[in-house]
């Protein structure tokens, strides 16, 4: 047994002979050699936003993401909001490549404009844009793009409430077109650091049904604090959205991580000014 995880699930040399690494290292269009016919599109994100975290509660969903766009390890742009309102009862949280996020926003804006054509807001029964429509559309778009080997380098969380049924909605889709739903969802680092905290609050739909708005907000705030502690590409300043069945969307784009204690930091090598 080869214990190197990299080799798991791959063709064995004993069976197929040694892998011809020229195949993987063939020159691509990006390297100015079209002769190989190999074409590449986006292979990595450039300016990025880090985690988005969200959790359902008994009357809706709470979601947060910080307001930072990093260029590699450089914390390049502040005040970049990554939670966006679409329609009346949906927020889309976007992590990953920021230019792809901005492209997605243009698409979502056009989607809402087209939806509102000849849609009379004063009639008794308006056909609202629902979170699941927006999600299905985005998931199709992400899968379509990855199938063309030209993905939008993002992980998205769509959260909201169905304005007709009042049902909270929370779903995830990423650049591979993979989608799933859960009472709590986080992208990026948050999937490792925030999810355990959020699952402690609500591990199942039944438990999320019992969660109050205040508890959910507190859970998200705690997650954002832990993420700021440990994620070097995060910022203290973040946006918080609450999508409630009754009160609609409340959005604050200027929340700060509070109640931090950095006392332990003095013992960490590499933190602050080096004393050697």
């Amino acid at each position: 047994m080869n214990h190197d995880p990299y080799s798991w699930g791959r063709p064995t040399d004993s069976m197929y002979g040694q892998y011809n690494s020229q195949i993987a290292n063939a020159p691509t269009s990006l390297e100015g050699n079209m002769a190989s016919g190999a074409n590449q599109h986006t292979t990595s994100p450039i300016v990025t936003g880090t985690s988005v975290v969200a959790i359902k509660y008994n009357n809706g969903v709470v979601m947060a993401a910080d307001n930072l766009a990093s260029y590699g390890s450089l914390l390049r742009f502040q005040g970049i909001e990554r939670l966006h309102k679409v329609g009346k009862t949906t927020m889309v949280g976007i992590s990953g490549d920021v230019s792809d996020m901005q492209y997605l926003l243009e698409i979502l804006d056009e989607l809402t404009i087209e939806h509102n054509y000849d849609n009379d807001e004063y009639s008794d029964n308006v056909d609202e844009l629902q979170p699941d429509y927006i999600f299905t559309y985005l998931a199709n778009l992400m899968y379509h793009r990855r199938t063309k080997m030209n993905p939008l380098w993002n992980a998205l969380i769509v959260s909201g409430v169905n304005s007709k049924t009042g049902e909270p909605f929370l779903q995830y889709v990423n650049l591979l077109g993979v989608k799933y739903s859960s009472p709590s969802i986080a992208t990026g680092f948050g999937a490792h650091l925030a999810i355990p905290l959020l699952r402690k609050l609500a591990d199942s739909e039944e438990e999320a049904q019992k969660l109050t708005k205040e508890q959910a907000i507190q859970g998200i705030k705690d997650s954002m604090r832990v993420l700021f502690y440990r994620d070097t590409r995060s910022s203290k300043n973040y946006s918080l959205a609450v999508i409630d069945k009754d009160s609609g969307i409340t959005y604050d784009n200027d929340v700060n991580v509070e109640d931090m204690s950095w006392k332990f930091a003095k013992d960490i090598r590499g933190y602050g000014t080096q004393k050697v």
């Binding site: 000849d118 629902q130 999600f135 299905t136």
Partner: peptide, 9 residues
């Protein structure tokens, strides 16, 4: 594409 019933209007 949208997972919805078409709006008749």
């Amino acid at each position: 594409v949208y997972g919805r019933d078409i709006n008749i209007q």
